[in-house]
């Protein structure tokens, strides 16, 4: 029965049914949009080199871990992975340490130039990274920050900071000032009130924005490629190492890159939901 026929039979139910179709359809489409590439990535990763370029594929491939094993034993992958984790962790810490206080100040205090500051924070995203990366590389060379975890993490922090500031700003704004004030009248100083009342309430959101920073750093490739040589992060390493590699190895590399990020997001998904204001039930 077509939708039109269904709508003709009952106006009232027809409308809600129509909504349901559109909704379900949209959900399926979005899920496919995300899941199909991941599925293909995984299938090809676990296929033998011959199957990768073959078509059509069987839905469940014959598991062949050859590519993955080869890839993981490939010299430098472990170290790149480790570098990635280090850089992303430092980025996460730096952007929360700088971003959360800024977000708090924006939401709680009135100061001159507040609006300008908010716009400026966003403006930093308007500069294309290539434009910044080259002068930065030169400067880093001069001051000895080139090819270091900290140096790259600083650049990644710059990329993640606007999000950290704006996300924490909206988190703090969502918490009524009166809660803090009530704590003050009950014997807290500003710091104690923050720790006892505000922090527990924003912690999920802070975690989410920290993870966001982590993922931004994890995925960033341009600055990583320009600014590091020995301490390559995984994306930069893959870009360099797999450029001319056979297809099946590229897939394996892609999977190694995607899986940790996926896993990470999966573990903290309830905080992400609360960050976007969806109740975490």
């Amino acid at each position: 029965m077509s939708t039109a026929a269904k709508m003709a039979t009952g106006n009232v139910t027809g409308k809600s049914a129509w909504h349901k179709y559109v909704f379900t359809g949209a959900v399926i489409l979005l899920c496919l949009w995300v899941l199909v590439p991941i599925y293909l990535l995984l299938v090809n990763t676990f296929s033998s080199p011959e199957d990768v370029s073959g078509f059509p594929k069987s839905f469940i491939p014959n598991i062949d871990t050859g590519s993955v094993e080869f890839f993981l034993n490939y010299a430098g992958v472990g170290q790149a992975l480790w570098s990635s984790i280090k850089v992303a962790t430092v980025t996460m810490i730096l952007s929360i340490m700088a971003g959360a206080p800024a977000g708090y100040a924006l939401s709680r205090f009135e100061f001159r130039g507040k609006e300008t500051f908010r716009v400026l924070v966003l403006m930093t995203r308007a500069f294309p990274l290539p434009l910044l990366a080259l002068p930065l590389a030169v400067m880093y060379l001069r001051i000895g920050l080139d090819d270091t975890v900290l140096g790259l993490a600083l650049v990644h922090t710059m990329l993640a900071l606007p999000f950290a500031v704006l996300i924490t700003f909206s988190l703090f704004s969502g918490i009524p000032v009166e809660l803090e004030e009530a704590a003050w009248t009950l014997g807290c100083n500003r710091f104690q009130a923050f720790v006892k009342v505000i922090l527990p309430l924003v912690l999920p959101g802070i975690t989410a924005s920290a993870i966001f920073a982590f993922v931004i750093s994890w995925n960033e490739v341009f600055a990583a490629a320009v600014l590091t040589i020995e301490n390559r992060t995984l994306p930069a390493f893959l870009l360099q190492g797999l450029g001319n590699a056979p297809l099946h190895l590229k897939f394996a590399g892609g999977a190694v890159l995607v899986l940790p990020a996926l896993l990470f997001i999966f573990l903290v998904r309830k905080y992400l939901f609360s960050m976007w204001g969806i109740a975490n039930r």
Binding site: P176, E178, L179, E181, A182, W184, T185, L186, G187
Partner: peptide
């Protein structure tokens, strides 16, 4: 500071933690 004034306050919008 409020904490040094020897006061307690009930807020118009409750402010229950």
């Amino acid at each position: 500071a409020p904490k040094d004034r020897g006061i307690a306050m009930v807020f118009q919008n409750y402010a229950v933690f």
